[in-house]
Nucleic acid binder design. Structure first.
Ligand SMILES: [Zn+2]
Ligand SMILES: [Zn+2]
Ligand SMILES: [Zn+2]
Ligand SMILES: [Zn+2]
Lengths: 151, 151
DNA sequence: AACAGCAATGATATGATATATCAGCAAGAT
DNA sequence: ATCTTGCTGATATATCATATCATTGCTGTT
């Protein structure tokens, strides 16, 4: 990722936090930047190691969990429940609202592509859920795939 | 669940294992039965406790993990990655092939309903994945919902 | 500037989930 | 009967996540 692009995203992240009243502190920003620069999802402990190595600090995993929770609340990162790893949102700098995220996870190289689910599919899914007597609250789809490179 | 119904399912499970060459041992069968009788998903450790209490044995969690893995391979149980819990398949006694499972998980009472995703939606999803340059391998959808009773 | 209030982080402990590994055993095949 | 393979026991360890209380550092008020 180009530095210019990165700065744009970080700027937008700042805006999002300002708007919500959250504080994008330097640690939170550092973690977010690290996530943005990673091309694979990272576990909380991997984030901790990376952060500590790259900054020479010694933040505890506990703090990283808190920061990841914060970033998740702001929808700046997402947690993949199928792998217990975290990934930066691909749509931070986009202007559209954040739809149901759909993650395509490569089973070989672990790379992840976040796409927004088509409205039509989302509607149909919700309809199916309603037919079963349930009310859809909030979900993300995590699809096990093979990416172009690996296939 | 009626005992007759339970026996039918266990018989079908036996058939499935025979067909695949796996052995539905008494322990495996005991775990499966326990899962079938539970109306909420259970963690591996919860399964361990239940099994040990109901049989007076002292199986280690390690063995339960192995058994759950086996049952999962045979598609007799599924693992919900969003909650790290296991649930018996709802379609064991059905004759149709096992489609992409779609789990509706109630956020209040934890009950789970497993429905088969509509073919049309599955196709559309696969098409979306293909458009993104990925190839869908094998997925299940876990949707966070509120069930009828709880809403 | 002093203070109060609240948000963020530090520090430590513990709990929950999952895998690795090697040894012993049981069932079916030759 | 011996062999092979798959199943289970037993123990250790790795990985993921939360609980709790103390401390620090903003921010807005007096
Ligand atoms: Zn996103
Ligand atoms: Zn790949
Ligand atoms: Zn099923
Ligand atoms: Zn419910």
């Amino acid at each position: 990722m180009k530095e210019q692009q990165l700065n744009k995203i970080l700027g937008k992240a700042q805006d999002i936090c300002n708007h919500s009243g959250g504080r994008l502190t330097s640690k939170r920003k550092g973690i977010l930047e690290l996530m943005l620069l990673s091309n694979v999802p990272l576990s909380a402990y991997e984030v901790t190691d990376k952060y500590n190595k790259s900054t020479g600090s010694s933040m505890a995993a506990m703090s990283v969990y808190r920061i990841l929770d914060f970033l998740e609340t702001e929808q700046l990162v997402h947690k993949l429940s199928s792998t217990n790893k975290y990934v930066a949102c691909s749509h931070i700098a986009c202007s559209h609202t954040h739809e149901i995220p759909q993650f395509l996870i490569c089973g070989k190289c672990q790379s992840v592509k976040e796409i927004a689910i088509a409205k039509r599919i989302a509607d149909e899914l919700e309809q199916e859920v309603a037919n079963a007597g349930y009310k859809l609250v909030n979900s993300q789809l995590e699809l096990q795939c093979i990416c172009e490179k690996c296939s």
